Structures are given as C-alpha cells and as structure tokens.
Simulated assay, not measured.
Amino acid sequence: MPLFIDKLAVSSPDFDNLGRIPEEFSADGGNTTPVVEFTGAPEGTVELALIVNDPDAPLAQGFTHWVVYGIAPDASKLDLEAEGVREAPNGAGVASYFGPQPPAGHGEHHYYFFVYALGTKVEGEPTREEFLARYADDIIEQARYVGTFSR
C-alpha cells in the first residue's frame, strides 16, 4: 500500500504529540474524551474517520480505544453530536471512547490517533479491523498524533 501523507493533520490541545496523556483522559481517571482537531483534508474527501489504537497492548492487534466515522471533511474538531458522526465498537466491543488503561507495570504505551480522509462514505459501524480491510483502497490521505501513558 502506498503512503498517503501530505497536509492532513490531527492534533489535540489536551496533550502534546508524543507527550503523556493526562490522567483525566484515562479509563481510571474519568475516561473524559480528549478534544481532537483536524486540518488539511485533501480535495475529494467525502468523510474523515478517527481510530485510536494502542499497538503496545499485549494483544495480536493491540487494543482499539476509539472508532469514529462520518466526520465532515471540513470539520476543524471532532463533534460527536454532529449530523452523521457515529462511534463504532472499540476493543471492548462498546461504541464509545475507552481511555488508556495499560496493564500496571507494562511500561509506556503509545496511543495512535489516526485520521483517515476517505473518498467514500463508511457504511455501518465497522470495527477497526473491518474498516481497514474494507476501506484501505478508499483512503486518500492519513495522519497520526501520538500520546503516551503508563500505570
């Protein structure tokens, strides 16, 4: 698969890229959803998708913490109440945000906030794995922002 990187960007004012995610956004600290911002969606983008994954989790595919579809291409930040926006099952099988909660003593985990600019609409609420299998060829561009957390 070719690289799809250019001007698309994802960020959060709640923590620095490669910085520690504050406790309030962890599963044990309140599970508050962080603010997620977007810029630079390329021409032809039909919708954005956001997937947060921890590849350091001791599972074959890591652990998926958040899956969101239907984000408007001109959205500057994630609004879960916006028309068409919907959450899909995370690694726990629940359609919502699940904050960092790595095993105690397992070291620093990395939480990848991936944004995908898509040339088509995502149908339904596929899991991360289903999304990547079905929509990989529809990705126009992607970007990531990484937070860290340990217990």
Rank of each mutant, 00 (worst) to 15 (best):
H109R: 13
P102T: 04
V94F: 09
E108I: 13
A136I: 03
A133G: 04
R134W: 00
Q142K: 02
A75Y: 06
Q142M: 07
T127Q: 10
A133C: 08
G105R: 11
I140L: 08
P58V: 09
Y97R: 00
E123R: 14
E24W: 07
G119S: 12
Q142H: 11
P13G: 12
V115T: 15
G147Y: 00
D137P: 12
L118R: 03
E47R: 01
R86H: 07
S11G: 09
H110R: 15
E43Q: 11
V35R: 13
G107E: 06
R20Q: 15
D14P: 07
N17Q: 13
T127F: 02
Q142T: 09
L59K: 12
G30P: 07
E83D: 15
F113H: 09
V46K: 15
F98T: 08
G119M: 09
L8N: 12
E130D: 13
E47F: 01
Q101C: 09
Y112E: 10
G91H: 02
P22G: 05
L18I: 10
G19L: 12
F15Y: 14
K7Q: 11
V115A: 02
V36R: 06
P13K: 14
E23S: 12
I139T: 01
D6W: 01
H106Y: 11
L80C: 08
R20I: 15
T39D: 15
T64A: 04
D6S: 14
P73H: 05
N17T: 10
D14F: 08
N53Y: 03
F63T: 00
G84T: 04
Y112P: 03
T127Y: 04
E24G: 05
P58N: 09
A136N: 14
V35K: 09
E129R: 10
K121N: 14
A88I: 05
Y135W: 05
A88K: 02
I140D: 01
D28P: 01
E47D: 01
D16M: 03
D6C: 11
E123Q: 13
V122S: 04
A60E: 12
L8T: 06
H110M: 08
G44S: 11
F131P: 09
E43F: 06
Y69Q: 04
G44N: 07
G107M: 10
G70I: 02
P100Y: 00
P13S: 13
A41P: 09
I140Q: 02
